[in-house]
Design a protein around this nucleic acid. Structure first.
Lengths: 199, 199
DNA sequence: GTACGTCGCGACGCAACCGTAGCGTCGCTG
DNA sequence: CAGCGACGCTACGGTTGCGTCGCGACGTAC
């Protein structure tokens, strides 16, 4: 149940939604600035301009707070329109990915939490759940379509295909952090399409 | 100048190499266990079974310690033998990468530090230097050879090519952390070769 | 209009880590 | 063989974050 709905239902003096919003925003900013490891509840409250107890009234721990806020952001589904060809679909998906990974907060938070997922099973479960869902979207909307069009053979290994689509751009933007030349994404899309089309 | 060479040169009562070694090892273990953000010098010394001052005599800060130890490990060059075909070379490189990324310490430390590199320019410079060198090795030994063989066109975009080789496996092993099926690497190598061979 | 419940806020004791100073010891130097 | 320099170790004050408690304020219900 969201804070707002609770306020609407009860009409009583419950959590003030404006402060919850400020805390959510402050959490993401702080997460990007110092990372999960160094994240302190004090700093989040300070950044939101709010007392520490405001946090403890809403979440019981740093982990719970991060999981709730992040899973809400990460849970958004992605609709990929059908452009009519595998190459076109690929280019569109890569453009969307690039747009997301270029966001200053996202480009810091995503690699940080993914690395933390190697230590904390709860973070791992939450993030890998979100990843799996997002990848399934891409797999269904992109690979399955290409199979239906006859562009790729039906026996295509979905595991390899997904890694081929997502891996290079993530490596480039989130790991090596090099800028993209203007025609990088079209080239990458073409090369990836070639990899998928060959049996 | 290394500790050992200083001892050999001066013959005086200098840093004991055994303790330096224990600290290096402890640093890597601690780095894998808690990450750079939470890393404390106290914990490293404790893990090495040594007093805190032993650390401060060798390094002035946590950052300097990490940079020194990590850059030594990361600086090792990679020689890729010529198997005679692009597909064979690719499969070999991917096998070596997979072997490295499966090491328990490396699989934790590498993503952690790479994510920290987004915040700390010094870490970024050190790591991206190492990455650039390693990628150049792969580029020269793998792509250039393929061009010489006539397997790929001379105008191949090296940026895209390198991301295509490294990205998918890194994504799979270091980010999603899913196990590899036995024929995953051959399939990935074949698909990547197809992506490179098409102009 | 009054009483009650929940709010945000500042203050508190506790624990961990930082970086440094003083101590006794060991081994090379002359 | 005497002296000295660098060693590792224990101990210390200062800082930061944790999680909790009691206070006054505010709005709702009766």
């Amino acid at each position: 149940m969201t804070t707002e709905s609770r306020r609407a239902l009860a009409g009583a003096a419950l959590l003030r939604g404006e402060i919850t919003t400020a805390l959510r925003r402050a959490l993401l900013e702080e997460l990007a600035a110092v990372g999960y490891g160094r994240l302190s509840i004090e700093a989040v409250a300070r950044r939101a301009g709010v007392a520490k107890t405001a946090v403890y009234r809403r979440w019981t721990s740093k982990l719970e707070m991060v999981l709730e806020v992040v899973s809400e952001v990460a849970g958004q589904r992605l609709a990929v329109p059908d452009t009519g060809s595998l190459g076109g679909d690929l280019e569109l998906v890569l453009q969307i990915m690039a747009h997301t990974l270029r966001h200053p907060l996202a480009s810091q938070i995503i690699p940080d939490l993914l690395s933390e997922a190697g230590r904390d099973p709860q973070i791992a479960q939450t993030l890998h759940q979100a990843l799996r869902d997002a990848q399934k979207d891409v797999g269904v909307q992109l690979v399955d379509r290409a199979v239906a069009r006859g562009e790729v053979p039906p026996g295509t290994d979905l595991d390899v295909a997904l890694d081929l689509v997502v891996g290079p751009l993530y490596w480039r933007l989130a790991v090596v952090r090099q800028p993209l030349s203007p025609d990088y994404i079209p080239r990458l899309a073409a090369a990836t399409a070639a990899a998928l089309e060959k049996p």
